[in-house]
Structures are given as structure tokens and as C-alpha cells.
Amino acid sequence: MSDGAARTARLLDELFGAGHGVAVDAPLVRGHATLGGRDVAVIGTTDQVHIGARIALALAGHVLDVVRDTPGRPILLIVDNSGQRLSLWDELMGNNGCIAHLTKCLDLARRREHRVVGLVHELAVSGGFMATGMATEACYALPGAEVRVMAASAMSRVTGIAEERLRELFRTSPALGPGVDNFVRIGGLHGVLDGDLRARIAEALDHVDPDPDPRRRLGTERGGRTHAAEVAAMVRAGH
């Protein structure tokens, strides 16, 4: 078993205790467990995998199985990826379509009254985050996890902004800098789960936000993304 898979297995043991029914078959994670006396479906990835067309479809298939076979059962999505897979074959197959399909399945689950909560275990990058955690109704991260769009060196190459200057900007701009804290501030993550993980996940599965997409509101409240909510409301009102 790879180090990443072993860490994921330890996380699952911590969450669900010994003898749970969630298997780590790297890079995929799937199964069912109980948490606080309720059944929970667990779906996810490990090993900081790159999300290619096959992985996206495998995850989508797991989501559909849960929707079909265990209606209404909450889904915990374990997020750990390095972004989308960069390969000619995946592009040839329409990786964007396969990822869109995965998010569509997660959306379908939500519409069919499944609670869908994401947990960034180690890493979530750009299109990989959009494919998974961003398609849940609430996504949390573990302390020490990382969320980013692009590494500083690559961002420097693409934008033409010197890496040193970028790192300076990272310190002051939650809209730009990588890291879980910045994503919490802009509303892209609900929060960081520390302390009693089981209790915190149980709380997250219980908490229902009446707002179908609270991220803009959270970004405004937390001061990290101050224009989005207002602009969207203005357009929605037809002004």
C-alpha cells in the first residue's frame, strides 16, 4: 500500500473505527460506514491522483450506485487530487465532459435529498477541486491540507509576474494565494475541521444551509471575496 493510501486508511479508521466497510483501492476509495449511529456512503480518491476520464467516471459510477441503491444516504466525499490528468488520451476522450458528468451525478444526489459533504484530506488542485469538493454542498478541509489553483512557479510563467512578487501578493490576497485559509476566506471551503473529527463530520452532515450556494455569502462575511455576492444579486435583479 502506498504512503498516501495508508494515510487515507488511517483517516477512515479514525472516522469510523475498526471494521468499517470503506475500502481503499488506490487511487479510489469507496464503501459504507456508520458515523454517530447513521449510515454514510464514502466515495473518494487518494494518492493525490490526477483526475482523468477513467477516474472521473469511476467516481461518478459510485455516486450513481449510492443514489440508486441507498436513496437519501449521506455521502462523504474524500478529496485528494493533484488536479486534472494532463494527457492526450484524456483530452481526446473529453475529460471535461467526464468531469462534468461526475459533478452532474453529485448534483443529482443533492437534488434527490442526499447530504453531500466534501473533505479535502491532503490536496485539491484547480480542475480536480472543481470535479469533486466544489460540487458538494459543503466542503471542509483537514488541518494541513492544501488547496490551490496553480503552483507559484507555474503561475509566474503564465502571468509574467515575477515569482517573488507573486509570493508577496499571496500573503495579502486571499483571492490569489494558495492555501486552505485563503479558500476559507473566499467561501470556497466551509471551514477547517480540527479537534474531534468524528463529531465535526457528524455536525457537517447534519447542518443544512437553506442557501443553495452559500459560497458568495461566506466570502462576503469573511471578507475574502467582497464583490461577487453584490454583483450577482445586481444581475439577478436585472439592473
Binding site: 472543481m130 466544489m134 490551490r148 483571492a175 490569489l176 470556497g188 466570502g219 461577487a228
Partner: peptide, 26 residues
């Protein structure tokens, strides 16, 4: 895709657009 000069805000905006697509379709 995402505007890298405001990368995080652009990425989350992408997820918001997508959720709104699903909502209006539903």
C-alpha cells in the same frame, strides 16, 4: 478558463456558475 491573476476567486466563481447551470436546468 480561470483568470490566474485572481485564481482562487475565479475558480470558486466557476463552481458557482456551474451550480447555477444545474439549478436553472432543474
Amino acid at each position: 478558463g480561470v483568470r490566474l491573476q485572481e485564481a482562487n476567486a475565479g475558480l470558486i466563481a466557476m463552481g458557482e456558475i456551474q451550480r447555477a447551470v444545474f439549478r436553472v436546468r432543474a
